[in-house]
């Protein structure tokens, strides 16, 4: 029974099922703790109510590669290989998905991927102006004009000579 023992089924919010190796799923803290709670039960289905299938697929893809690379590069070089893969991985995710992915990963409590995705979003903000950030993330300025002028004045030192792009 070893072959079914080390598999677990993750169910997305739409009800789509993903069969995953335990080695991969155990990186998701929430799945791990749910399975520990129900130890002994033969049923290995974990419902992830709020996580859409596309995010489940992304998360599984990441950790599948993570586990594989770790096995392959036990003696060293794992970190570089992982970085390489992370770069590719992020390239296929758009801005909106990236934000959804943060929420999903946060919910599943998967620290390594959480760092990767948050760092990726942080990169988009690097050296940008306030206006750029508002536009990029679709945020409406809800300060009053006085409030904004006051805040601007407080941080004046930080903005001297910054480009507006």
């Amino acid at each position: 029974m070893a072959s079914t023992d080390d598999k677990v089924i993750l169910k997305s919010s739409e009800g789509e099922c993903f069969e995953v190796d335990m080695a991969v799923a155990s990186h998701l803290q929430i799945v791990k703790s749910v399975l520990e709670d129900c130890e002994g039960s033969s049923d290995k289905v974990v419902s992830l109510f709020i996580v859409e299938a596309k995010y489940v697929a992304m998360i599984i893809e990441y950790y599948k590669n993570y586990v594989e690379l770790k096995e392959k590069h036990e003696e060293g070089g794992f970190e570089e290989k992982l970085k390489e893969f992370e770069k590719q991985f992020l390239e296929q995710i758009d801005k909106k998905e990236l934000k959804g992915l943060v929420m999903a990963v946060n919910y599943l409590n998967a620290p390594a991927l959480f760092d990767v995705v948050c760092t990726a979003i942080a990169k988009h903000i690097e050296n940008k102006s306030v206006e750029y950030v508002r536009e990029y993330f679709g945020i409406v300025n809800d300060f009053t004009a006085e409030e904004e002028a006051q805040i601007r004045e407080e941080h004046r030192w930080a903005y001297d000579g910054v480009n507006d792009d």
Partner: peptide, 23 residues
């Protein structure tokens, strides 16, 4: 987006100042 609040912990100083002016 809620995700942005998580990202705050990953930002350097200048970006934090910018974010505190966004909304």
């Amino acid at each position: 987006h809620d995700a942005l609040f998580f990202v705050l912990a990953y930002l350097p100083v200048y970006e934090l100042l910018v974010m505190s002016e966004v909304c």
